[in-house]
């Protein structure tokens, strides 16, 4: 629970002890983590980021385990960030994803699995997962898998960190309308119908494929046809094909304007998250202190005036935000 500054060099050298501690500091929002993350930045940007999302019980962890085994077979090192929900009542969490993946990892130094509790805060969680991705990236992991429960906006924010989002569905999930209303068709780059060994899997895959899901690139030019694959994570069937589809999507976005746009968006959202975090913590606290014991007669008006004054101060501060690249 102590919060000493973690040596960045040790993390880059692959020390799991130091990386593990740094991730805890990130989760706890410790300021000690900030300079370390900055020091790691030059070593980031090499890992392939793959999101695995889908409804509870779809077999995401088991599928992730199968993917880990496949990637290791190709000689690629893997980092895994497995997010499970915290109890909104006690704040506690039961993190069970590692159990499903332990077999695939089994003491293999090429695999680093970290279980993360959602802790209820969606925006904060996305920022923490972003930073944890950087830690694993800087450690030199070739692929970072991000596994989340695909329900709710906050989870989608996390999935968007990934270069490729694999949506895991199961037979009997519901018809295509169900998939569309959940908003998931807008985030999936590859759809995997898991439990391919169960009855109805082929029909489900066929139904989904018939929808002809497509993703449109940032400039509206390139289109990506979302492949729908049937897999059985349990039996290891279709896993190689799924991994190939993920790599194909990664190569496709890398060769087009998609990746650059995604990286820009990620950079922007991280900037916003950092700023929001510090403003909430520090600026708001300062404002409250200034307020002291006084009670504004018109809280709404006072807040409006305060924010107006802040925005004015921002305008006079500078035309550009320091440290950003010019277009």
């Amino acid at each position: 629970m102590e919060a000493v500054t973690v040596p960045a060099g040790e993390v880059v050298a692959g020390s799991v002890l130091h990386a593990g501690r740094l991730i805890t500091q990130i989760e706890n929002g410790r300021p000690q983590a900030r300079p370390v993350l900055r020091a790691l930045a030059p070593y980031c940007g090499r890992a392939q980021l793959v999101g695995v999302t889908g409804p509870p019980g779809a077999g995401k962890s088991t599928l992730a385990a199968a993917l880990i085994r496949h990637l290791r077979g190709q000689g690629r090192t893997v980092g895994v960030i497995a997010v499970d929900p915290s109890s909104p009542f006690t704040g506690g969490a039961l993190l069970g994803d590692r159990d499903r993946m332990a077999e695939a990892a089994g003491g293999d130094p090429g695999v680093f699995i970290r279980s993360v509790a959602s802790r209820g805060a969606s925006g904060g969680l996305a920022a923490a997962v972003n930073d944890t991705v950087d830690v694993m990236d800087a450690m030199g992991k070739d692929v970072v898998l991000i596994e989340t429960v695909g329900v709710g906006q906050g989870e989608f924010d996390i999935a968007r960190i990934a270069h490729t989002v694999v949506l895991v569905l199961v037979p009997g999930y519901g018809d295509a309308l169900q998939a569309m209303k959940a908003g998931i068709t807008e985030i999936a780059d590859v759809v995997a119908v898991n439990k391919g060994d169960a009855p109805g899997a082929d029909q489900t895959a066929k139904d989904l494929a018939a929808q002809g899901f497509e993703r449109t690139g940032p400039d509206g030019a390139e289109r990506w046809k979302v492949p729908v694959l049937t897999v059985s994570a349990l039996r290891g069937e279709g896993v190689a094909e799924l991994a190939a589809a993920v790599d194909e999507h990664h190569a496709f976005t890398g060769a087009t304007a998609w990746r650059a746009a995604a990286e820009r968006a990620r950079g922007r959202s991280r900037f916003t998250a950092f700023v929001a975090d510090r403003l909430r913590g520090e600026l708001l606290k300062a404002a409250e202190e200034t307020l002291g014991d006084t009670r504004p007669a018109d809280p709404y008006g006072a807040a409006e005036a305060y924010v107006g004054a802040l925005l004015n101060a921002h305008r006079t501060l500078s035309a550009d935000i320091p440290g950003t690249e010019q277009k």
């Binding site: 704040g91 003491g107 970290r114």
Partner: peptide, 25 residues
Amino acid sequence: RDAGMEVVYFRFGVVAEIAEAALQE
């Protein structure tokens, strides 16, 4: 969990797996 802790539950084959998991987590 109900006491507010974050519990990573997993089954191990050999003891080294516990140590490795403790480190990563």
